[in-house]
Design a binder for these strands. Structure first.
Lengths: 199, 199, 199, 199
DNA sequence: AATGAATGAGGATTCATTCAT
DNA sequence: TATGAATGAATCCTCATTCAT
């Protein structure tokens, strides 16, 4: 007997609730600092349910980190290295990234945890690393295009990409208790600078 | 009957052993992932001794993070905003910072943990924040000097400092499994760029 | 999905088992001298279960002392100060109290612990104190009635009540290793004497 | 090399300090609730010293309970069953006992602990029991004398003694937080009553 | 699928006692 | 004798996971 649509939807919703609660609590109290019981309460779901939706706590953490990642895939896709006006494309990209990173506080705390303890979360780390690689590659392409077009100073595009993605992550950590806000917006031109735009 | 010198020294050594073991394990397995028992073993010290040297696990963590900080104080002190050749001073500074950050992998993992969970480690966070503020201030001064001397493009020195320190931290996280090495050295000119040197 | 009746009953039984085991062991070995592990074993319950039924060891102690108290409430209720034959009522009461105190050895050891360390068990002490106050009040009423009817010598009823309840507790302590028995029965007339019956 | 007098005296004083501190803390926090470290601090003595004066914690407790007992020996000795005016002698005794018990709060808490857990402190219990037996015997003698002289009603002297000593202990427990005071004084005539004085 | 009780391994901390100085 | 560091057993409590209902 297949599940009715209503059933399936209800379950999907429950699963999402758990995931959201987990992400929030993991970010706030850390992985080990968050008992499954608390997640269940925050998600308004029975304790046992958490385990019917996720094999165990680790799997829940994995999903809490990797599923939101899909949403950010467009940050990669939307970069267009073919674009004629590379500088404009760069600026659009940086502005968008800054905005998104500013709003991703919670998520990036989880990411940081995975990065600093990649041996504890190898699967999760792998997915994050792949995402980051895709982003880096796209950024590199754009830098190459800019240099070919003569609007960017010559630099190793790979290093530029490394510097750029590091900067985004570092900002998020340094401004950890900064209200998501204007503070961030004004940093756009500074971040742009790492690409070596000719003035 | 005060303790003999030999006694005192032995104790200092023991304390240091515990601190080193703790830092290493905390970085590797995380705060909650590191049982005190393991720290004692790694430090070659009895379990109980950990508690004769540190009030509790949290105090041990605090010391493991803040005591090494003192060593890095010179990174701040050695910056000389009065230096005539600002560009040279900047380059020296960045090269040094890059080198040190590359070698501080373990320590910066702990720092990251404190930053992402500052509410759990408020005292520790405070000390880190103060250090960072001292560093930022010194950097700002140097940027101001450079701009006055006309060797740096005009930018808000505060933002430049934020960008710079964020970049250092972000690099450390992004290159987390990067062997401390040449990789880092070549990033110096890229990092320098955020200061807006006139070419 | 509420628990089935059978379930609920099983749980009630388990809880009671824990409580009984706890009371026995606390009396025998003292509060600190009784590990939770031992209680679990004596109650034939898993270690963890003790904590699903009681928040912590202290709460378990509190329940072990205060819940039996409810059973003794009738010792208070059954005193009838309106009774015409006050002397007979008094004798009945004393005989009953002596019998009950003789059989409450274990429980009164716990009570004694609370009394002697009321600062450590403030909540528990409060409940015991209230019970004792109810008992004292009822006894006072009875004494007043006896004095009005001229069958008891005039004395401050409050003091009489204090003396009487103290005597009961003191007997329990002094005869601590006395097999519950006839020994006690013969003390009834002696205890009666504190009420000042006219001969 | 025998110790100098000054030395011996100093040691005696230290020993006494420890004993006093121990008694106070044991009474306040219980045997298990009092770490040796705290006793040392309260006695203003080094931690190690406690163990040079007492074999272990249990021996310290034993001494803390039994040594003061010697002071109370005169309570027994001063009872004179040969005294002509038995009633006066009784009243003197009761008044003295009441006064002393009122002031022995701390000590009697320890006694109570031993009584309720005599299996844990068998040696200590034995000494207390013997003291109590001496007291009871003296009281019995006095009661017998009173009955022979016709000033006390006929009752089993042994039971009277039991009732009397129980009453004293019970009062101490019931009035545990009663400021040592007048409250107690007024109880004398009530306590006297258990001896069955002819009016 | 949903629930929450049952379980016991794991971990932080305390503390009596020992012992080197 | 005096001191206080060293030790590790003992204990409370938490919590992920299992499982019966």
């Amino acid at each position: 007997m297949p599940l009715s649509d209503a059933q399936t939807q209800k379950m999907q919703r429950k699963r999402r609730q758990i995931l959201i609660a987990a992400a929030t609590l993991f970010a706030e109290y850390g992985y080990e600092g968050t008992p499954v019981k608390k997640i269940a309460e925050a998600a308004d779901v029975s304790f046992g349910s958490v385990f019917t939706y996720f094999k165990n706590k680790e799997a829940l953490f994995h999903s809490a980190v990797t599923e939101p990642l899909k949403e950010f895939e467009r940050l990669v896709d939307e970069i267009d290295p073919e674009e004629d006006d590379v500088l404009a494309e760069l600026e659009t990209m940086v502005a968008k990234h800054i905005r998104v990173y500013a709003s991703m506080n919670e998520f990036l705390i989880l990411v940081t945890r995975v990065l600093t303890h990649y041996r504890k979360f190898p699967e999760t780390f792998k997915e994050l690393d792949e995402f980051q690689e895709r982003l880096r590659t796209k950024v590199m392409r754009l830098v190459e295009a800019g240099q070919e077009k003569g609007v960017l100073h010559e630099q190793d595009p790979e290093n530029v990409a490394t510097i750029y993605t590091s900067l985004l992550l570092g900002l998020r950590l340094n401004l950890i208790d900064e209200p998501d806000s204007r503070m961030w917006e004004q940093l756009v031109p500074y971040a742009l600078q790492v690409f070596g735009p000719k003035r």
